[in-house]
């Protein structure tokens, strides 16, 4: 069986990660496919993984009675989705739904967490990468809150 390592190496999230770390990460990775409309994870469910998007798009959604599904953001190839696995209570805050055929690599949270605890160097690499994503999302969220195109 072909290893996922070369695929991970090409993803922007892992850019610059040292090969021996990449090898460790690959041990926690698995390939997944979703059809358009399929749910990848559901709000409230236990969050055990995060996903590296290889191809396709997904939406982060939330359901509000009376309003139905509200889409927060679309994510696509090159993006990373999911950080609920990092912290208790390890539950998904949003629902992730494929809006096209979707190929992702799922990374097992528990597996990674253990390896990060054993090697803080790896842990640091992960934190750097995740905090960067978090900052990007936070800044985008703030801009979205400003509702810039609305007429005051």
């Amino acid at each position: 069986m072909k290893t996922l390592e070369p695929i991970l190496a090409k993803h922007p999230f892992f850019a610059g990660l040292q090969p021996h770390y990449l090898e460790l990460v690959t041990g926690c990775a698995s390939n997944m496919h979703f059809k358009a409309g399929e749910t990848i994870f559901q709000e409230g469910d236990e969050a055990k993984q995060f996903f590296i998007i290889r191809e396709g798009t997904l939406r982060l959604q939330v359901f509000a009675p009376g309003q139905g599904e509200i889409s927060i953001q679309t994510l696509e190839s090159g993006d990373v989705v999911g950080w609920s696995w990092l912290f208790p209570p390890h539950r998904w805050h949003f629902t992730g739904r494929a809006t096209s055929a979707l190929r992702v690599i799922a990374l097992d949270g528990q597996c990674l967490y253990t390896k990060c605890e054993q090697d803080h160097g790896l842990g640091y690499e992960f934190l750097k990468r995740f905090s960067h994503i978090m900052m990007d999302r936070l800044q985008a969220t703030r801009l979205q809150l400003l509702d810039l195109y609305k007429v005051n």
Binding site: T57, E69, D136
Partner: peptide, 19 residues
């Protein structure tokens, strides 16, 4: 093309143009 907010019948991208 992306929109800041959308209902379900929008098939396109949701998010900021800066992203």
């Amino acid at each position: 093309v992306t929109v800041d907010r959308a209902t379900n019948n929008w098939r396109g991208s949701i998010g900021l143009v800066t992203q």
